Structure formats: structure tokens, C-alpha cells
Amino acid sequence: MSLPKVTRPLLRDAAYDRIRHAIVDGTLPPGTPLRDGDLAEQLGLSKAPVRDALRRLTEDGLVDQKPQSYTRVSDVMSPDVLDAREIVRLLHEFAVRAAATTARPEDIAAMRAANDRFAKAIEAGDVEAAIKADDELHDIPVRLAGNAAVAATLDRYTPLLRRLEHARFSSALAWNSVERHTRLIDALEARDTVTAVSVISTIWTDLLEDR
């Protein structure tokens, strides 16, 4: 039995994932110069997949590039982040409006279970687990909305907000999120669309305002 060789696309994806994670968790803070040779050496890769990863991260808004001048980690509060926050907020409001009329008891139970996991992760100081549980909770209204374009757009722009989430969930402000999640779930269970939309709007607005 033999294992297949790691292909170039997989190396490219691995470089992207590792550099992106280092930017999101603050290992590579805003303004850090990104040199493809240095990164390639640290990752044990050639320059080609690293260059491709930096191109993708530039498209994501996590890296700033100016040809023949610099490549660096973008500012946390860049215009791209502000724009992404607005798009993400509006799309989650759309999803919650739909979920308020379609959520079943099992959907509500799944959201409560995700919020429980979120709270336990916060208590344990496990930010990655908290982000995962937060995603699972918010993915339920998105799924119930049944709109592929909404889901795809959120997949595109939510990663740009990860550094804000990482900072928030690393602080005492994370407990505000637990309480807001509970209010959101209660509103959806009661089919109170107005309250549910107001809460979800606050969740995403305060991702910036509560800093």
C-alpha cells in the first residue's frame, strides 16, 4: 500500500491555511512584512505555493500588496473589514427573518446546544472552539433561509472578520455574546421576528463597536 503524493494544489491550500491562521490568531500581527522566501522556509515549501497563498489572502483582504514595494498583513480595521461587516450583518438579518418563521424545535435545540458549547469554550479560554461553536449556531438560520447565494457570500466575507472575533472571544466581552445568543434563540423560538433581527444586528455591529 502506498499513499498518493501531495499535489501542488494541496501544497498551495496548506500554505494558504497556515498563513491565514497565523494572521487571524495574531501570530502575524497587522503591518508584519510578508516575504515569500522567509515564509516558504518556515513552512518547508517552495516559493510558488506561498506566492499563490499571498495572492489569495490579498483577495480576502487579509494582506496588503503594492508591487515592487511591500507585502504585509493588513490592518484589522481596514475598509475591507468595515465593508465585510456590513454585508455579513445584512445577510444574517435576512437569514434570521426566514428562520423566525421556519425554525423547528430541533433547530432551536441545536442552537442552544451550540451556545452551550460556545460558553464552555469561552470559560476554558479555547478561542478556536468558541469560533467553531459560534459558526455552528449562526449557520442554522442561514441553512433555514435556504438561499445558496447568501450562504456563499457569507463564506466569502466572514473570514475577513475572524481577527475581530478572535479578539472578542479572547476577552470578557465574549460573555455578552453568550447572552445575545440566548436572546436570539428565545426570539426565534417565540417567532418574534422583530426582536430576532434586532439582536442579530447588534451581534454583528458590536463586533466592531465593543472593542
Rank of each mutant, 00 (worst) to 15 (best):
V73M: 04
V178Y: 09
F169Q: 08
R104V: 11
T32K: 00
T7N: 11
H92A: 00
L161P: 07
L173N: 13
V88N: 01
V127I: 13
A148G: 12
A103C: 07
L82E: 03
R143W: 07
D13L: 13
K120S: 09
E59R: 05
P79W: 00
D38V: 12
I200T: 02
L173H: 11
G146R: 03
W175Y: 15
T32V: 04
L154C: 10
R12I: 14
A151S: 14
G37N: 12
A129S: 14
A187C: 01
G61A: 06
P159H: 11
A167H: 02
T101L: 10
R112K: 05
G44M: 05
A100G: 15
V142P: 11
P49V: 07
D134R: 00
A119M: 10
H166P: 02
G146W: 03
A196C: 09
D25S: 04
T182M: 03
I19K: 01
R162W: 13
D107V: 03
A99H: 05
R85S: 03
E41N: 10
S78W: 01
I140D: 03
A114F: 10
T101M: 09
R85G: 06
D206V: 06
D83A: 14
V88I: 15
L164F: 06
G31S: 15
K120E: 04
D134V: 00
I140K: 06
A14R: 04
L173F: 08
I23K: 03
Q68P: 00
D155F: 06
T27E: 15
I185P: 00
A40N: 09
R89M: 15
P33C: 07
L28T: 01
A99R: 09
Q65M: 14
V50G: 14
A151Y: 05
A98T: 03
L57D: 05
